[in-house]
Design a protein around this nucleic acid. Structure first.
Length: 466
DNA sequence: AAAAAAT
């Protein structure tokens, strides 16, 4: 199967092949011909499956062959987040470079002036988040009566975010005679209902979840104590020893994102942050810094979990285990894209056990627990000794024979051993046999990890000691 | 529980 077999125009085909694409992804192969035949589509697919091109490409051909009437927009693409909308707009510009199609990106957080101007000039395609679109509509800046093509992207995310009433209202503003494409990773009942109401005789296309198919991502659970400074320490350790090129670090809270980024910067990492409390220009600027490699670590809330397509992300860290298992799938999907390999670490504190359980149920696979050298506390003057978690962990990990050594109070003077450890861990294996059974199984041998076939991260080849 | 989205 090649792009040439899908029925796209020669002109567009050239653009696609010039961009270096030869073989369509499964969803592109099955969606594009149907979209060109003007069918309604339900696409059950995650981001990272080539979904965007599966509607952008045929849309360009359809628009190129039709004629615009009175400069009214002829198609509308709805996205749940501003960044995703911006990304689809980029795609549209890339693939539509050889066509005289105009486009307006209608998202919040940026001034309305330019958007209104573009609308007045007349555009073929609207790419929008629901809030700004409704706003502009209510102000009388948009007429949707010429929109004969509608794309509802990431419908389940829209549902999560409470956008479904908005979507329904927007649907009623569009002409009844139209083509509607709905994409969603999952099909919960409200989305099914939405599809029944607004799509006509849709063709359902389903492609496998990346989580169950993307064997390019090596996944690990990192047991951690609940305290955030413990987690930060563990994170720094992994960032250093794992030769991280580019990483996205997900936190569950915006405050955690801010704190963590600040802390990473203080420790000399080139990091940035993105979350919904930032001004939109700032959000885009940080994303741009990351894409250009000026920073190589992006600390993010779930605003960045879905759909963002950034090339070459080698690592994803879940600094907090996500509350929703779906989010896990989306987060780790930021790495291992386009056939590249990636590593995903999920920090799991004792309280996160249930979340982890749900994640493993959803993906249907058990995630390897990573055994790591203990994080050794430096003496922190003025800080009260913590009472619970570290001690519990110590007790759980220590073999009876070690109890005396392990039970030493944290404030007892000991050599600082964490720093040198990262410098030259493999030359100085420490620890006796009693430690060996705590290594990750198979460390240093041919990996048996459910299909991981990428290069083995260096630290996994090393004998881990405590 | 949190985050996202119109201001």
């Amino acid at each position: 199967m090649s792009f040439a077999d899908l029925g796209l125009s020669d002109e567009l085909l050239k653009t696609v092949t010039d961009a270096g694409y030869t073989e369509p992804t499964p969803i592109q192969a099955s969606a594009i011909p149907s979209v060109l035949m003007m069918r309604d589509i339900i696409g059950i697919a995650q981001t990272g499956t080539g979904k965007t091109a599966s509607f952008v490409l045929p849309m360009i051909d359809i628009l190129a062959h039709g004629r615009s009437r009175a400069r009214m927009p002829r198609s509308l693409i709805l996205e749940p987040t501003r960044e995703l909308a911006a990304q689809v707009a980029e795609n549209f510009e890339k693939y539509g470079a050889n066509h005289k199609l105009s486009m307006a990106l209608l998202i919040g957080g940026v001034s309305m002036g330019d958007q209104v101007k573009a609308l007045e000039k007349g555009v073929d395609v609207l790419i929008a988040t629901p809030g700004r679109l409704m706003d502009l509509f209510q102000r009388g800046n948009i007429l949707l009566t010429g929109c004969s093509m509608l794309v509802i992207d990431e419908a389940d995310r829209m549902l999560d975010m409470g956008f479904i009433p908005d979507i329904e209202e927007i649907c009623t503003k569009l002409p009844k005679q139209r083509q509607t494409l709905l994409f969603s990773a999952t099909m919960p009942p409200p989305i099914k209902k939405l599809a029944d109401k607004f799509l006509e005789n849709p063709k359902t296309i389903e492609v496998a979840r990346p989580a169950s198919t993307n064997i390019n991502i090596a996944q690990f659970v990192v047991p951690v104590a609940a305290q955030s400074f413990e987690k930060r320490k563990r994170l720094r350790q992994l960032l250093k020893q794992d030769e991280v090129r580019t990483a996205i670090i997900f936190c569950n809270r915006k405050t955690t994102v801010r704190e963590l980024n600040k802390s990473l910067k203080q420790h000399g990492f080139r990091s940035g942050e993105i979350h919904g409390d930032m001004e939109q220009p700032q959000r885009l600027a940080e994303l741009d810094l990351f894409k250009r490699g000026e920073i190589n670590i992006l600390v993010a809330s779930d605003v960045a979990a879905r759909g963002l397509d950034i090339k070459g992300v080698s690592h994803v860290f879940n600094f907090d285990a996500p509350w929703h298992p779906d989010d896990y799938v989306h987060r780790i999907g930021r790495t291992g894209r386009g056939g590249a390999t990636g590593v995903a670490y999920t920090f799991v504190a004792p309280d996160d056990a249930e979340n982890l359980d749900n994640i493993e149920k959803l993906t249907g696979q058990k995630i390897d627990r990573l055994e790591l050298p203990a994080v050794v506390e430096e003496e922190r003057p003025g800080r009260r000794r913590r009472e619970r978690a570290p001690r519990e962990e110590t007790v759980e990990m220590a073999a009876p024979a070690d109890a005396e050594v392990e039970a030493q109070p944290a404030r007892a003077p000991r050599p600082r051993r964490d720093e040198p450890r990262f410098e030259a861990p493999r030359d100085e294996p420490r620890g006796g046999d009693r430690r060996r059974d705590r290594r990750r199984p198979n460390a240093g041998e041919a990996p048996d990890d459910g299909g991981w076939n990428g290069p083995i991260p260096d630290f996994l080849k090393v004998t881990l000691t405590v």
